[in-house]
Each structure stands twice: as C-alpha cells, then as structure tokens.
Amino acid sequence: MSDLLKSPNFQTGSDLEWEYASPGIQRQVYGYDDRVMLVKVKFEKGAVGDVHQHPHTQVSYVESGVFELTIADETRVLKTGDGFYVPPSTLHGCVCLEPGVLIDVFSPHREDFI
C-alpha cells in the first residue's frame, strides 16, 4: 500500500462535498487507499445508474430506498437492508424506484472518483 494515496483517517459526512455523478445522482467519497474505497451515493426517484462495467470488485449496501438492479443478465428489486456483489468487468446498472442511498465499496479504489 502506498502512503501517497490515502484519505485522512477520519471523514465527517457534513464536511464532505456531494459531487455530481449524473442526473439525479450525487456521491460522497469516504475513506480510501490504493486497495479499497467507500462511496455514499444518493439517488432521486427515477434516477438511472446507466449500465456500465469497471475492473473493480464492488460490494454495495442499500442504506435506504428501493432500487431495480441488474447484474449481468439478472434483475432484482432491492430495498433498505439488502446488498449486492458485482464481480470485476461485469455489466450492471440500476433504476431508483424510491429515493435512496447506496453505500458502495470498491477494490481497488476508483481512480476516476479522486
């Protein structure tokens, strides 16, 4: 692990800027180093996380809301308290059915989010 790429040890949600991700979607980047990253993503009802893929492993937790989520060729509706796993380089995307928040963990970190 490189000490050059590392977030502060503590993050305070009220001090983190919400970044525009796409229409109806904002994110806050929490702790990270070159091996892992935690991101909070806020969705408005009807917002679409376009189908995409990336080389990172992703594990996510539905903090609030309801989402129709597609991973590869499987689609499910997930609600508060549910979670999902996306293998590297796998197509995935979602539609927000009720306003909510996803907590995403990426390994390694998402360089494009820093």
Rank of each mutant, 00 (worst) to 15 (best):
D73I: 05
D82G: 05
S14C: 08
E111I: 09
K79I: 04
E44C: 00
N9Q: 06
E17M: 12
S2L: 11
P8W: 05
E19R: 14
R35E: 09
F67I: 12
Y32K: 04
D73T: 15
D112W: 07
D15Q: 15
A21P: 01
L4P: 00
R27M: 03
Y61Q: 02
E63K: 13
V105H: 04
Q58M: 10
Q26R: 10
S7I: 05
T70K: 15
T70W: 12
E17G: 06
T12L: 13
S22C: 10
T70N: 11
S64K: 15
W18V: 05
V29P: 00
L102I: 00
Q58A: 11
G100P: 05
V77K: 08
Y85K: 03
K42R: 12
I103S: 00
D104Q: 04
L4T: 04
L38A: 12
Q28I: 08
L102K: 01
Q11W: 01
V62Y: 09
S64T: 09
E68D: 11
V39F: 07
I114M: 14
I71C: 04
A47V: 08
H56K: 02
E98W: 00
P55M: 08
V66Y: 03
F84H: 07
Y30S: 10
G13M: 02
V48D: 04
L78D: 01
G93K: 11
F43R: 02
V51N: 06
A72Q: 09
V59E: 00
G83W: 15
T70L: 11
P87Y: 14
G100W: 07
N9T: 14
K45P: 08
K79F: 00
Y85L: 06
V39R: 04
F113M: 15
L69M: 15
P88E: 08
F113R: 03
G93V: 12
G49W: 12
F10C: 00
V66I: 01
G100S: 10
P88Y: 11
H92V: 13
V48C: 08
P87A: 15
T57Y: 02
F67R: 12
V62Q: 04
E74V: 15
F67P: 00
I114Q: 14
M1A: 13
I71T: 06
L97T: 11
F43W: 00
E68R: 15
V105F: 06
V62R: 08
D3G: 07
E19P: 00
V41S: 01
D33F: 05
D82Y: 08
G31K: 00
S107R: 02
F67E: 08
T80E: 15
V36F: 14
Q28K: 15
V95M: 10
L91T: 05
Q53W: 12
V95W: 03
